[in-house]
Design a binder for these strands. Structure first.
Length: 414
RNA sequence: GGGUCACUGGCAGAGUGGUCGAUUGCACCGGUCUUGAAAACCGGCGAGGGUAACACCUCCCAAGGUUCAAAUCCUUGGUGGCCCGCCA
């Protein structure tokens, strides 16, 4: 959630910033009004509550002194009716505010370039040179089937389209990658955490997937639980509703989970192969920091993911997302795009975001510094999507006969 | 899954309808004493919101309910202990 004080105190600049993220002024205006309504309602309710408390105290005193309470009771009863009305008004004002506020995205950082979509993203850096081939490189699905690594048909048989089965060396490579990434991240100071892959509504609200993006999530109906779309959700929400000692920050975590996404809006994109699946494996990085630490940790996370790719020998580039491509909760995002020779293009394999205090305000993640409670900053980044890393390895390290060379760093994991 | 007992400030632990947001001990912070420390003594000390600062509001696992008034009574849920059943 964005800071409502910003709406209250510096409306114009906040509205301008939000407009960069395609939020229309009307919504911002209604947010301001809803906030003011709540403040008014609260004030009215609380001062009447104070009166009620005072009368109840008197009631007890009268009883003790043996005085008659008949008159007081009439007054107190009348006040209670009014109190209930004001409470209801306040409740409605709260609901109205939340309905709007929870659907307003985060403000982009000032340095984030303006833009409409991914075409306006800005390349920062290329790492490693794409390999040249003396033959026409194949796409990963061809290589995967030829090597017997991935079985797309049987995945569909077991579940539905966009599911697949990985077996043999492919399955072992998948496991090797997960272990390699977790070890790599641990050496960079990220503590490994194993978390639930089903979470409740509150957790998803905390990180911003709900209420707005329920259509993208798989839900276990009877339990009101959801399959996680990313480990960012359980990892960040570990500290939901907590006040952390400032000295313990930054908290840097890494975790491996499966991720589940409905891919509702993706239409017919990437139907072939393993680029876009309903279930995929991912090793994630999450950090909870003090407000003044998040920029440094952000760079650490980008470096961690980029160095991991480099260690695997995978050419890639770093891209700053423009305002139009920025996610709901992100103030700033750097994507890592890996080179895919079969597709002759760079494709996203990791995404590192700083949400600043946006998630922390929703999830109530705070830290105590010199006796004051401050909202933490939260950051998340994929330390590589495992499936897409497999794809990149297949396409970059393919030989003319279709066999695939395994990167040296993975040898000891196989 | 069934039964039963419990859940109170950092910890321990009082409080069973009314000046209780909560006795007390430990821990913690300040002071006196001391060369310094410990001990002893004195004072302070739960949390969230709100305010320029007060005021004020809320919080005794959570959500409802009864009552003028709830930590205290009732209902449901959660978590933990023990017993039974089941399972990896």
């Amino acid at each position: 959630m964005i800071d409502l004080k910003l709406i209250q105190n510096s409306f114009d600049s906040t509205a301008t910033a939000l407009r960069r993220k395609k939020v229309d002024s009307e919504l911002i205006e209604s947010l301001k009004i809803a906030n003011e309504n709540l403040k008014t309602a609260k004030l009215a309710y609380e001062s009447l509550q104070a009166k009620q408390n005072e009368m109840s105290r008197l009631f007890g005193q009268y009883k003790k002194e043996g005085k008659s309470t008949d008159e007081l009771k009439i007054e107190v009863d009348a006040n209670k009716l009014l109190l209930n009305e004001l409470l209801e008004t306040q409740r409605q004002a709260e609901e109205a505010l939340e309905a709007i506020a929870m659907r307003v995205p985060n403000l982009p950082d000032a340095e984030v370039p303006d833009g409409e979509d991914e075409n306006d993203n800005v390349e920062i850096q290329k790492v490693l040179t794409p390999p040249t081939f003396e033959f026409t490189p194949k796409e990963h699905w061809e290589l995967a089937e030829q090597n017997g690594w991935i079985d797309f048909e049987r995945g569909v048989k077991l579940a539905k389209s966009r599911f697949s089965v990985v077996s043999g060396i492919g399955a072992r490579l998948e496991r090797a990658l997960i272990n390699f990434m977790l070890d790599f991240n641990r050496e960079r100071g990220f503590m490994e955490v194993s978390v639930p892959m089903l979470v409740n509504r509150r957790a998803l609200e905390g990180t911003g997937q709900l209420p707005k993006f329920e259509d993208d999530l798989f839900k276990v109906e009877e339990e009101e639980l959801f399959l996680i779309p990313t480990a960012e959700v359980p990892l960040t929400n570990l500290y939901q509703d907590e006040i952390i000692n400032a000295a313990e920050l930054p908290i840097k975590m890494t975790g491996y989970t499966s991720c589940f996404r409905k891919e509702a809006g993706s239409g017919g994109r990437d139907v072939r192969g393993m680029i876009r699946q309903h279930q995929f494996h991912k090793v994630e990085l999450v950090a909870i920091t003090r407000a003044d630490q998040s920029d440094v940790v952000f760079d650490e996370m980008v470096a961690c993911a980029s160095d991991l790719l480099a260690a695997l020998g995978l050419p890639h580039r770093l891209v700053t997302l423009c305002t139009g491509d920025l996610g709901f909760g992100a103030a700033r995002t750097v994507d890592l795009e890996v080179w895919l020779p079969g597709q002759n293009t760079y494709r996203e394999i990791s995404s590192v975001s700083n949400t600043r205090d946006f998630q922390a305000r929703r999830a109530r993640i705070r830290y105590k510094e010199e006796g004051k409670n401050m909202l933490a900053h939260t950051l998340n980044g994929s330390s590589l999507a495992v499936g897409r890393t497999m794809i990149a390895i297949m396409e970059n390290f393919q030989q003319e006969d279709g066999s695939i060379r395994i990167p040296d760093v993975l040898q000891k994991y196989l």
